[in-house]
Design a protein around this nucleic acid. Structure first.
Length: 892
RNA sequence: GGGAGCUUAGCUCAGCUGGUUCAGAGCAUCUGCCUUACAAGCAGAGGGUCACUGGUUCGAACCCAGUAGUUCCCA
């Protein structure tokens, strides 16, 4: 069989993904096996794959594939999120490009466009996930606005309203005066700007005294309803309860006291404008102050302000400053740096604005479901990394009610019904039901003319139901799927949505299933570039994942992502890592080429026995380490374990040990064992690199149609011969020493050197001495042929005296001489010996000191003391050899 | 302003209960090799006052306190 020298992912990846899909390997139905479930964090339906998705989904795929190979019934549910704000924005923009304004369309017309857009572009991202190799059950693909899922959202809203966990109230929101809509916090970008701090006189009623107030927003003075000072502020104590005159509009307002006010900031007196500042609003509420909204929704000054009516807010600021100066009320202007929020989309400066919104009463909800916090704190739901538990707790301790209404059209419309004057009449699925309800509460009233709430629900209000709703757990709470797959096993997501999503899914899980939604939560880091900058479109520092796949293969990119992603840490992505991944595929491929190129001869070559026993032990050891890493979700570590086993142990040592001479055949026993090990290697690596391992697995054996590495059982660990591993390590140490001497002597690979073992009382042939070193006497000569082979040794013999002019080294308590033909510098050799002797003596002294310390001996555990004793013995032996060598050198 | 985390090799990180030969990887670097699987490769090497200061302990990268720097969350 002719295999190309370089592995080409393009020839295999699409081929195998199609095969997997055709054979339906990823589809799951409930059966008798243990379930393993992951629900995807649904990406935005109109989104495209970015590096964050790559990382997140690679991790999920690894977990799912491993579970599947462990014989579990693995089910990974894919899907997308309707993402109301982002999607609506995209549709609005698309319409604008066509010359259509949203305001010219009816709600139904707009939604028609939105659905068309969704059908056309939605789900591109899912196709991209296939390129990555994601083994999702595509037959279960869901969308948060699928009829069943939307229905669940509406029912949940009605249910919560019935339970008294939802209410409608006034609240300060982020208002975009340009787009005339509210924005979520995530859509507001904060930036530092230089502005002025105005110091303004508020005259105290009936006196010539004034109270100085500092503000950056003089255009909101018309909305002032009080001035607040700190009750502990000696300067102002006498003014508390007095009345002051608001400049420009001459309104009389009280001076109140609250500890919220920072004595140090400005003048220590704060003007209270409840309509235009979140904190002022809170204070206003606390002291029952009125709210005067002096802005219109487009950011111009309203009638309520009395002056500057109709002018833009920034124009008004300038005019207010001038007017204050005219009136002699402006004390001074100072330069001041503060943060201003801007709309991500329109760049307009955000105005805090009061409006009627729907809320979930979080305090009540948590009182009803204390497990939402408790189960995370007690690790019943385990966070990886666990340090994020602190953040979770801190958030819950400072909960605010969840605002769930959005002034948008794309999403689930709030099922609340109002009469003509805007009073809430009922919360119900349909108008008919609402009328029914209103009749019940007020039978005598005429049938009202009802209007449904114009707003839709927050997208998170549908995604918090995701682990239940994808299995239709609301319409049919006792169905086969939900009973089998729920609670799910692992959730893989980003820490920044811990509150938006993770916490709320836990809430929903307890409220409607009485059970947690998942057992483990794995938080990935934020993908950043080499310079630690967040990857973003505007910086242009985010590579296109599909281009990377094109360049390095999906396996290469998957490896590249994972190589730099310890759980919870940020990912400093570097394209070079993908290259490393690609190179690794190629390494594996070439190992296949080597093995498949051998001619096989019946029989057994006993020289290879120890090498085979060693690699088997080493592999079992690797499997144990790998499983331990998986159990604690240390996936980077797990990958590194397999990576090193394959590259270093299997390729660099094992294959070199057993490789027959050029054109010589290999014995069948060794060949069969090697193929078996290679097969296990592909299985171990498969969750990480699904494509190249499937390809190689098929080439390693005679596979039938319908067979796949996906459905093979993940290798289990067997017996580990620790002594064999030590023996091999000693062999490698000897070989490395020889190679180093060869390298320094500039020996060509084709030239041999001679090796002599110094036969003192610790001879390698001496069985007792081998026992002393903890080595098995049966293997005395086991690896010697291999030392000759890999060290390119001509003669390998024993010698009873120091070999003058030869280079020497000590390995595992044995001394060796290497004759390179070039005369070694005797003084340098001697110096080396002396240095090593000095060092070992110093080391011995420190160990002795420890052992002589009575407190150490009495308080340290026995294993530690035994360790120290062993160190002492080893050091003594080493000193003896060194001393002996040195004596001989000196005598010569 | 409040809270949480981090600081170990040039870079990115391990170091799990304080104790196994003066601290471990990967990448990068340096040297030599196109040695019949792989130059996307092979062989070898160098590189660290564990941020700083003090404390606890027989023993500290690890525990405690303080200082500095840094990141994130909330306001």
């Amino acid at each position: 069989m002719e295999l190309p020298k370089i592995y080409d992912p393009k020839l295999t990846e699409d081929k195998w993904y199609k095969y997997w899909m055709d054979q339906g390997f990823f589809h799951s139905e409930p059966d008798n096996r243990e379930p393993f479930t992951i629900v995807i964090p649904p990406p935005n339906v109109t989104g495209v794959l970015h590096m964050g998705h790559m990382l997140n989904n690679t991790i999920q795929d690894i977990l799912v594939r491993k579970a599947r190979m462990e014989g579990k019934n693995a089910c990974w549910v894919p899907g997308t999120d309707h993402a109301s704000i982002a999607t609506e924005a995209k549709v609005v923009q698309m319409l604008r490009e066509k010359g259509i304004k949203k305001s010219d369309l009816s709600r139904d017309e707009f939604l028609k466009y939105a659905w068309e857009w969704k059908e056309k572009y939605g789900g591109i991202i899912l196709e991209q996930l296939k390129k990555l190799g994601a083994s999702c059950d595509w037959e279960r693909t869901s969308f948060t606005m699928d009829p069943k899922l939307s229905e669940a959202v509406i029912e949940v809203f009605i249910d919560l309203h019935k339970k008294g966990l939802i209410y409608r109230g006034l609240r300060m929101i982020n208002w975009d005066p340009s787009a005339k809509t509210s924005l979520s916090n995530e859509e507001v970008l904060h930036e530092e700007v230089k502005s002025n701090l105005y110091f303004v006189k508020y005259m105290i009623k009936g006196t010539d005294e004034y109270l100085a107030v500092a503000t950056v927003r003089p255009e909101t003075i018309m909305g002032d309803v009080a001035v607040c000072v700190n009750p502990n502020d000696e300067r102002y104590k006498h003014l508390i309860g007095k009345t002051v005159i608001v400049p420009m509009v001459n309104r009389e307002v009280p001076v109140i006291a609250d500890e919220y006010v920072d004595i140090e900031f400005g003048t220590g007196a704060l003007k209270i404008t409840p309509a235009h500042d979140v904190n002022d609003y809170e204070i206003g509420k606390k002291y029952n102050l009125p709210v005067i909204d002096c802005f219109n929704e487009d950011g111009t000054i309203s009638e309520a302000a009395q002056i500057f009516v109709g002018l833009d807010r920034f124009k008004a600021r300038k005019l207010a400053s001038e007017k204050l100066e005219e009136d002699g009320l402006l004390i001074k202007k100072e330069e001041y740096t503060n943060k201003v929020g801007r709309s991500e989309r329109t760049n307009a400066v955000i105005e805090p604005r009061l409006s009627l919104q729907w809320f979930v009463d979080m305090k009540k909800f948590f009182a009803k479901n204390p497990q939402v916090l408790d189960d995370v704190m007690s690790d019943d739901i385990q966070f990886y990394p666990s340090k994020l538990k602190n953040t979770y707790k801190h958030w819950i301790d400072n909960l605010r009610d969840w605002c769930i209404s959005r002034q948008l059209w794309w999403g689930q419309r709030i099922p609340a019904w109002y009469d003509e004057t805007g009073n809430l009449v009922a919360v119900a699925k349909t108008e008919a039901e609402a009328i029914e309800q209103s009749k019940k509460t007020n039978p005598k009233a005429a049938v009202p003319n009802l209007k449904q709430d114009e707003d839709v629900l927050d997208t998170w209000f549908s995604s918090w139901l995701w682990p239940i709703s994808v299995f239709n757990g609301f319409e049919d709470p006792d169905n086969k799927d939900i009973n089998y797959y729920y609670p799910t096993n692992d959730l893989v997501t980003a820490p920044e949505i811990m509150f938006f999503w993770v916490m709320r899914m836990i809430m929903a899980g307890y409220e409607w299933r009485g059970e947690k939604p998942f057992k483990n939560v794995y938080y990935t880091g934020i993908v950043r570039d080499k310079l630690r900058r967040k990857m973003s479109k505007s910086l242009g520092n985010s590579p296109d994942p599909l281009e990377l796949i094109e360049k390095y293969g999906a396996d290469g990119v998957r490896l590249g992502m994972l190589l730099c992603s310890p759980a919870g840490n940020d990912i400093l992505f570097d394209e070079k890592l993908c290259e490393q991944g690609r190179n690794f595929s190629n390494k594996l491929w070439n190992a296949l080429r080597l093995v498949k190129g051998w001619e096989v001869k019946e029989g057994t070559n006993d020289e290879n026995r120890l090498s085979i026993e060693w690699i088997e032990s080493k592999m079992n050891d690797t499997i144990n380490q790998l499983n331990a890493s998986f159990e604690s979700f240390r996936l980077s570590e797990a990958l590194m374990t397999v990576y090193k086993f394959i590259w270093d142990d299997f390729c660099s040592w094992y294959l070199e040990l057993i490789k027959p001479d050029y054109l010589s055949p290999i014995d069948k026993t060794t060949y069969d064992k090697t193929i078996a090990i290679f097969e296990k290697i592909t299985q171990l690596l498969h969750p990480f690199m699904p494509f190249v391992t499937e390809e190689i697995w098929h080439l390693l054996g005679d596979r039938k149609q319908g067979e796949t590495i996906n459905l093979t059982r993940y290798p289990e660990s067997g017996e580990i011969d620790e002594e064999m591993i030590r023996e091999a390590q000693l062999t490698f140490e000897i070989i490395i020493n020889i190679r180093e001497i060869r390298a320094k002597a500039n020996k060509k690979n084709t030239e041999t050197v001679d090796l002599f073992h110094f036969a003192n009382k610790m001879s390698r042939k001496d069985i007792d001495s081998r026992k002393e070193f903890g080595l098995d006497e049966r293997r005395t000569w086991g690896f010697d042929e291999k030392i000759v082979k890999l060290g390119r040794i001509g003669t390998f013999d024993e010698i009873n005296e120091e070999l003058k002019g030869a280079k020497s080294f000590i390995a595992g308590g044995y001394k060796f001489f290497v004759v390179t033909g070039e005369v070694a510098d005797a003084d340098a050799e001697k110096k080396k010996l002396i240095e090593e002797l000095e060092y070992t003596r110093g080391f011995l002294a420190s160990v002795d000191k420890k052992l002589a310390n009575e407190k150490f001996v009495s308080s340290a555990p026995a294993t530690v003391i035994d360790g120290e004793k062993k160190k002492r013995e080893d050091a003594l032996k080493k000193i003896e050899i060194l001393q002996q060598s040195l004596n001989l050198t000196t005598n010569n």
